[in-house]
Design a protein around this nucleic acid. Structure first.
Lengths: 175, 175
DNA sequence: TCAAAGCTGTACTAATCAGTACAACGACAC
DNA sequence: GTGTCGTTGTACTGATTAGTACAGCTTTGA
């Protein structure tokens, strides 16, 4: 589903790939939509597991370490890879049900950034009137766009620049 | 295709929607892939036609008018809408052929921004060592991510903030 | 030991898919 | 008029789709 899209990935292909029978699929999932729902959940888990630095945003330098970790993932052998959630968003974002799930997933992702920003605010290193959730949302927008362009271009530069702009924007609220 | 994705939109549905027969489709297009190719071209035309302000980026204030125009589109009755090119990128971006077409389309889009930046540089209002193409690319990344989040959230804020950050970044190179 | 409940393999259906075959249509040159 | 070429409608094919039916398997609990 990540590589070829959700619609182009039939249930039969999924089952063949994992060596399971059809009765298993329809025993554990009501239909393909519910499978996709589980896939979205798995995407978020994988994404967060791949960027552990997002859990240690205790100072401003940690944000730089986080972006460096993101860039390192994208420097892999197969070139820049797309964000799985972004892929789903493009294909199924008009479906209100899927949009809701994606919204939740992104908010969870952003909450890690917001947590770091709140810690900085509590330490007096972020302006008291700064809005951590909104700042995190803006950073996520830059990250997502950078990922998408980097994937399409097979070039990490758009992501690197977008992340630099995003973190620069966060730091512009530093105290 | 824009609403439901490419794979979920059968050739038969397209033909039914426009009242054409199958022989017409396969007379003018070799196969569905070529139809998709034409759709991508049409997407770019529509996108550029919807933001005429991108052709008049003669001073810094014009960049603000351009972002305001983008936001006005998204303030429409049906809420924030996704970028058609971004949708295709999510579903088919792993296909090298499609990725190339999207890359070309985005470069064409960005070239309008770069043209404005070059004009500013020639007037001495942009730093001489600034890279217009790269700045345009970064702005596009922010724009794309903002569009995607705004669409998923049914809220224009992520796009507004991302655009503000993008133009702020451009202006940070002003002379 | 036995029955119930949970689990799985295989075969199937009806619908839909992209693409083809082919006859017939229209305009236009001569 | 007539033949040619570009165009179109309709019917079709074989493959694939999501989902179901059902029999048989395994585990569990008493």
């Amino acid at each position: 589903m990540y590589t070829n899209g959700v619609a182009a990935t039939s249930v039969d292909k999924v089952l063949a790939a994992c060596g399971a029978g059809k009765s298993q699929m329809y025993h554990y999932f009501k239909n393909k939509d519910q499978l996709v729902e589980a896939v979205i959940g798995r995407y978020l888990e994988t994404i967060l597991a791949n960027q552990p630095a997002i859990n240690d945003l205790h100072d401003w330098a940690a944000f730089d370490r986080w972006t460096e970790q993101l860039l390192d993932i994208q420097r892999g052998p197969q070139g820049p890879i797309a964000c799985p959630l972004g892929n789903i968003a493009g294909e199924l974002g008009d479906d209100p049900r899927v949009a809701g799930l994606l919204d939740k997933a992104y908010r969870e992702w952003e909450s890690h950034l917001a947590r770091g920003l709140i810690a900085l605010r509590d330490k007096g290193e972020l302006a008291a009137d700064a809005d951590p959730a909104r700042l995190a949302q803006t950073a996520m927008a830059c990250l997502q766009g950078g990922l998408m362009l980097a994937h399409i271009r097979r070039d990490i530069t758009p992501l690197a620049d977008a992340l630099a702009v995003a973190v620069g924007h966060l730091k512009s609220h530093a105290r």
